[in-house]
């Protein structure tokens, strides 16, 4: 059996797998792990999205992987350059949890807001979301196999799940 190469996607980072690698990102809390996939060419992209909108950015050079509204088009571009057909992409995502509960503070709803914002950005580009495992109050580690199109999701309290 061939060993599968695993590409690690860091926080506020995105990567493309075009030769049968797996994509993996660890410890998603309120962050969202988004996967785009061209099934025919077996090209996958993953982004570890941290914040809902680049409109709140105060950095000079925006890191597109960090914000939902820039990560989606950014990942599509990256995949197109690797040979994927943007018109054929479908999406899966996981994360967007609310790890802690407090009354009042809006920043605490960041998980659900990340999820909503990713959905909006996908819709804008006409990309269909075919599966998601979002929300809750627990962390997730995800791994996407670009040969099968399966997204493996692992959490501490809820075990392993595939979507």
């Amino acid at each position: 059996m061939n060993e599968v190469t695993v590409l690690k996607v860091g926080m506020a980072d995105m990567k493309v797998a075009a030769s049968g690698e797996s994509l993996r990102t660890t410890g998603l809390g309120s962050c969202v792990g988004l996967v785009l996939y061209d099934e025919l060419r077996r090209i996958a992209g993953m982004a570890h999205i941290m914040l809902p909108s680049s409109s709140i950015a105060r950095e000079n050079r925006i890191n597109p992987a960090k914000y939902a509204d820039t990560a989606v088009p950014g990942l599509v571009d990256m995949m197109a350059r690797a040979g994927a057909d943007p018109g054929r992409l479908v999406a899966k995502m996981a994360g967007g949890a609310q790890m802690f509960h407090f009354a009042g503070e809006d920043v605490m709803r960041i998980g659900p807001r990340n999820v909503e914002s990713v959905k909006e950005a996908l819709k804008k580009l006409g990309i269909r979301l075919i599966a998601e495992d979002t929300g809750g109050n627990y962390g997730r580690t995800v791994e996407f196999d670009s040969r099968t199109g399966v997204l493996h999701i692992r959490s501490v309290q809820h075990g392993v799940k595939e979507i």
């Binding site: 926080m11 809390g29 962050c31 941290m50 960041i110 627990y138 962390g139 997730r140 501490v156």
Partner: peptide, 13 residues
């Protein structure tokens, strides 16, 4: 009680 990355992400927003 969870993965350190998921928890600490909150402190980095």
């Amino acid at each position: 009680v969870d993965m350190a990355g998921a928890i600490l992400g909150y402190g980095l927003l």
